[in-house]
C-alpha cells in the first residue's frame, strides 16, 4: 500500500524534525545532576555499594525495581493465561542435533556459575539480579532447546518465582520498621563481597525470581502446540 507508506514517511519526517529541533535545545554532556549529584556524593555513606548504579536501582529507586519485577511476574502470569490451556502435544518435536545437545550439556555448569557470579557481585561490578537471572534462565533453557520433550517443571519455577518475589517484598516491608519502606540496611565494608547490607540479598532474590520466571516462560513458549 504505497499511499499509506508515504503518509507514514511524511508523518515520521515531521516528527523527526520536531524532535531534532527540540532536542537541540538540550545541551549534551552537562546534565543538571539535581538527583544524580547528591547520589554520587552520598551513596557510599548511605548505602555502601561500590556499584553506584546498583545503589540507585535497589535503594534510591528501589520502588521502581519492585514494580519492575512485578511487571515481569505479571507478564509471565498473563502469558501463562494465554498459552495455558494449550495442548501439550508439542512433544512431537524432534530432539536437536549433535552440536546443540553437546554444547547445551557442556555450557550448563558454566552458565550457572556465570549467572551466579553476576548476581552476587551486582553491588560491586556491573551486573545484578536481572542480568544474572537472565543468564540462569538461559542455562536452563539451552538443554530444553536440545531436548524439547523434556519440558520445564512448572511447579518448581512457580514456587521459586513466588517465594523469591515474596522474599524481595518482605525485605522491602521490613524497612518499614526502620526508616521506611525499602530502606537499605547497612553493613559490611565498601568493596567487599559482604557489603551494602541488604542489597546483595535483594539481588539474590531478584536473580532467582527472574531466572525461574524467564525459564518457565521460555519453556512454555517452546512447548506450545504448533499446528
Amino acid at each position: 500500500m504505497r499511499g499509506r507508506d508515504l503518509a507514514a514517511l511524511l508523518f515520521l519526517a515531521g516528527l523527526g524534525a520536531l524532535l531534532a529541533s527540540v532536542m537541540a535545545e538540550l545541551g549534551f554532556g552537562n546534565p543538571p545532576l539535581r538527583a544524580g549529584g547528591p547520589i554520587l556524593e552520598q551513596s557510599p555513606s548511605q548505602v555502601g555499594a561500590a556499584n553506584i548504579v546498583t545503589s540507585v536501582v535497589l535503594a534510591y529507586r528501589g520502588m521502581d525495581t519492585l514494580v519492575e519485577l512485578t511487571i515481569l511476574f505479571t507478564a509471565a502470569t498473563a502469558a501463562g493465561m494465554v498459552l495455558g490451556q494449550g495442548t501439550r502435544a508439542g512433544r512431537s518435536q524432534s530432539p536437536a542435533g549433535f552440536i546443540l545437545s553437546t554444547a547445551a550439556d557442556a555450557l550448563f555448569p558454566f552458565l550457572l556459575v556465570l549467572g551466579a557470579y553476576i548476581i552476587l557481585h551486582g553491588h560491586l561490578t556491573p551486573g545484578g539480579g536481572f542480568q544474572g537471572g537472565t543468564i540462569l534462565a538461559v542455562a536452563f533453557f539451552l538443554p530444553l532447546l536440545a531436548q524439547p520433550n523434556a519440558g520445564i517443571d512448572e511447579r518448581i519455577t512457580t514456587w521459586v518465582e513466588g517465594s523469591a518475589g515474596a522474599a524481595f517484598l518482605l525485605i522491602a516491608l521490613a524497612g518499614l520498621a526502620g526508616d521506611g519502606f525499602m530502606a537499605p540496611f547497612p553493613g559490611g565494608e565498601l568493596g567487599e563481597l559482604l557489603s551494602a547490607g541488604s542489597l546483595p540479598v535483594l539481588y539474590l532474590a531478584l536473580g532467582l525470581k527472574v531466572g525461574a520466571e524467564l525459564a518457565g516462560l521460555m519453556g512454555r513458549l517452546l512447548t506450545e502446540d504448533e499446528a
Partner: peptide
C-alpha cells in the same frame, strides 16, 4: 547514575 538505572528498568519492562 540515574539514567542507567532508569533504562535498566525500561529494558526489563520492554522484555515483559
Amino acid at each position: 547514575p540515574v539514567p542507567q538505572a532508569l533504562i535498566l528498568t525500561a529494558i526489563v519492562i520492554g522484555v515483559g
